Simulated scan of single mutants.
Amino acid sequence: MDVAALYTFAWQHAHRVPEPLQRAAATVAADLTWWRHGAGVRRLEANYARVRPELDARALRRLSREGMRRYLRYFREAFTLQGADPDQIAARVRVEGEENVRPVVEAGGSVVMALSHCGNWDLAGAWATPHLAPVLTVAERLEPAALFTEFVAFRRSIGIDVLALGDDGVFRDLVRGAEDGPRLLPLLADRDLTARGVEVDLCGHRARVAAGPAALALATGAPLLPVGIFHERLHGERRRRAGSAWGTVIRFLPAVPVPAVEDRGEQIARLTQAWVSVLGEFLVERTADWHMLQKVFVDDLDPERYARTKARAGEA
């Protein structure tokens, strides 16, 4: 199967399918995937169980069903986003906490944002570039290479500039981007994809997340904001203008304070824990919007592989 060709076809043609039919197809696909209860769904439920330990097995299954529906909704919206006009994008997005970010960018500064895999971050970025400041981010390099090329082209078509994780000079380019403000630098950081992550407490459990947001904020002096993104149902006039039954809420939370310690490694660790603590509260509130079908908690990782990861990072 040519995955790149399938994704390209979806990006080019999905927006031509009537929205009610899109919704129905995505819901059926999500429910079928949930019903099969494969490895991804089981991992989603395991992650939800750590965030929401008060739920029994039945409630957890209901929550994972809603989580899968929102996960497939994200893909449906992403595939059709290129067909949305600026007025539709503006109608689909509602912002909370704008006062935490707008004064900085209006003064010419940049903002580093720590994101989780929640809601529709592509729609959030498509809204942010024309309404706040240009968006520069980092994405995992996908395979095959043609798929990543199409993915980058898609992101750039909606106003999001993308650097490839693992390429030489990525951090340097992020620093330069921040210094050439105003600019928003959102980084999906609730899962460490390198050997340089930080072990933190997330909802009472040890987890390993990316160090990038904290390191970039310290290197540039830009404020570090945790950002929560989640879906909401639309009604009435706003639904008509959006051309969609669902919208996205971007919650800009207050910047986390820089810890008053001299050691840079300790600063990164404490600053990372600060935004993760805020993220944990958001995940408890909006658990079904968390599209985390991979292992993120330390107790779920292979002990030997994790020991090697920590050794490569120079940790005890």
Results as ranks from 00 to 15, higher is better:
1 M>N: 08
5 A>Y: 00
5 A>D: 04
10 A>V: 01
15 H>W: 14
21 L>F: 15
24 A>H: 02
33 T>R: 14
34 W>Q: 10
35 W>R: 12
44 L>V: 06
53 P>G: 03
55 L>Y: 15
55 L>W: 14
65 R>I: 07
70 R>M: 08
73 R>Q: 07
75 F>Y: 14
75 F>I: 11
79 F>L: 03
80 T>H: 05
80 T>Q: 10
81 L>V: 00
84 A>P: 01
90 A>I: 09
92 R>D: 00
94 R>T: 07
94 R>F: 02
96 E>F: 02
97 G>C: 09
101 V>E: 00
104 V>E: 09
105 V>Q: 06
106 E>G: 11
109 G>Q: 01
113 M>P: 06
120 N>T: 08
122 D>Y: 07
123 L>V: 14
126 A>D: 02
128 A>I: 06
135 V>A: 08
135 V>D: 09
137 T>H: 03
142 L>I: 01
149 T>S: 05
156 R>F: 04
159 G>N: 11
159 G>H: 14
160 I>V: 09
162 V>F: 01
167 D>C: 05
167 D>Y: 07
169 G>V: 05
174 L>R: 02
177 G>P: 05
181 G>R: 08
185 L>F: 13
186 P>L: 10
194 T>S: 15
194 T>F: 03
197 G>L: 13
198 V>P: 08
199 E>A: 07
199 E>C: 03
201 D>H: 07
202 L>H: 14
203 C>Y: 12
209 V>C: 12
211 A>C: 08
211 A>T: 00
212 G>H: 02
214 A>H: 01
219 A>L: 12
224 L>Y: 03
228 G>W: 00
229 I>F: 08
232 E>P: 01
236 G>D: 10
242 A>W: 05
243 G>T: 07
246 W>Y: 15
251 R>N: 09
270 R>G: 00
273 Q>L: 09
275 W>D: 05
275 W>G: 07
277 S>P: 07
279 L>P: 00
282 F>D: 12
289 D>W: 14
296 V>L: 14
299 D>Q: 09
299 D>K: 06
307 A>Q: 04
312 R>Q: 09
316 A>G: 14
